[in-house]
Design a protein around this nucleic acid. Structure first.
Lengths: 237, 237
DNA sequence: CCCGTCGAGATACGAATGTATCAACGACAC
DNA sequence: GTGTCGTTGATACATTCGTATCTCGACGGG
């Protein structure tokens, strides 16, 4: 084992990568010789999106195999990077887990808002109300995966204060929105919109979890929601 | 290293417990000498309750520190036995996890039934209905721990068919019971008791999860339940 | 030419995990 | 004294975990 440039001896090192050059000078010489033909474009692998790429790998693993399978090595393999890269971009595994949950929260909120805004009849509060509630259900593969990941994180948050903080730091804007929509859509008299919203949001979330287990059918959940909306709202505006 | 009795040589063994006697005869001799004073009561460690003891240890660990901390060694330490005992009484860790979930299911059902049956006014369907719904809430330390364990198991069941089967194998007797209670307590006309029961059970379960995080107060949940019961039921029977 | 910085590769460490192996133990029967 | 049965103690093993350590590659400034 000699230096690639000066053929001199190398220092021995028990740990880490094995040395190839005897000195920093020899390393630089080899580098400059290598790039004499200017090397058009080595890779440029978008250094900004690295964290995102890793976080998405966690989401996939957690959704398909559970959070307990989200080890550093598995995450790195799923993201197509080396474990060292994961270690580099995040302080440690815990920081990585927390970041992934925060990003998923924002992602869900963003996607939900976009889907609701894209509705044609965005002016009709009844349609908006239904769409908002259905946003809690696993209606497509993306939302299904997201709900599975959230369920896994919820369980962990019961014994991890840092994760619990993510769940707690948002107030209850969803229930406030549903409350406002109920009132805008025309609630029957003697209806307490806020209390109805609490049970609707809680109930639909719970039914969504049953859908993950296929303990209910989507059609049945929709009928239940429709029934309750019709009980809350006036016949026609 | 000689035999304890005859001081003869022992067989060597690379793995497992180190031999102390050179033969079965020496072992028996040592045993009988040892129990010359008749040994009033060695231990009698209730061989039947061993599994139960270990399963309860899992529950405690899962409730306080999460299912990911429920390792064989931790469980054994919590149960006050050696890891070997855990290994002996269950085929493997997975079997242990599944058994613990099944036992918790039965335990919860049993306790719930007992609590409801112990109500003084067990004849009034309104009281029964409220009590049945509140059975889903973490009203004391025991139910709080149980709910935490269940939440952890639910997350795992999403990626473990054997655990999912435990959640699925029970039908929906709870909703049927609530449906019957709604009708018995006097539902207003134009009420679909079954659909109300679905949302009530789902909603109260969801609110129970929020209580675990202290995102809501118990008083608030109770007010919400009361509000909905008064909307569903007639004024007075 | 040397030096420093940032991202990444390669390897290694120490601890923890699920499980396997083998003998010892208490108790009984022959 | 020996066999056997259900149970337990005391290791040992292979693997995997999170993380630490050390270097290389590429680049920019003196």
């Amino acid at each position: 084992m000699k230096c690639r440039v000066c053929r001199g001896p190398l220092r021995a090192s028990a740990r880490g990568r094995r040395p190839v050059y005897c000195s920093r000078a020899c390393q630089a010489r080899a580098y400059r010789a290598r790039r004499n033909p200017p090397v058009p474009a080595p890779a440029a692998p978008e250094p900004a999106g690295r964290r995102r790429q890793i976080v998405e790998a966690i989401w996939r693993i957690a959704a398909e195999r559970g959070l307990q399978m989200a080890t550093v090595r598995e995450i790195a393999a799923e993201a197509g990077v080396s474990p060292r890269v994961v270690q580099y971009h995040f302080t440690g595994k815990h920081h990585l887990l927390v970041t992934a949950l925060q990003m998923l929260h924002r992602e869900n909120e963003h996607r939900g808002r976009e889907r609701i805004a894209a509705l044609r009849d965005a002016s009709d509060p009844r349609v908006l109300l239904r769409a908002t509630l259905e946003e809690l259900l696993p209606l497509d593969e993306q939302r299904r995966a997201s709900l599975r990941v959230m369920a896994a994180y919820y369980a962990r948050s019961l014994t991890d204060p840092a994760l619990a903080a993510v769940f707690l730091h948002e107030g209850s804007p969803l229930e406030d929105l549903v409350t406002a929509l109920i009132e805008a859509a025309g609630a029957r008299p003697s209806i307490d919109a806020a209390r109805e919203a609490v049970l609707l949001v809680g109930g639909v979330s719970g039914l969504g979890l049953d859908l993950l287990h296929r303990r209910r059918t989507l059609a049945d959940v929709r009928r239940t929601v429709d029934y309750h909306l019709s009980r809350i709202l006036t016949e026609r505006p």
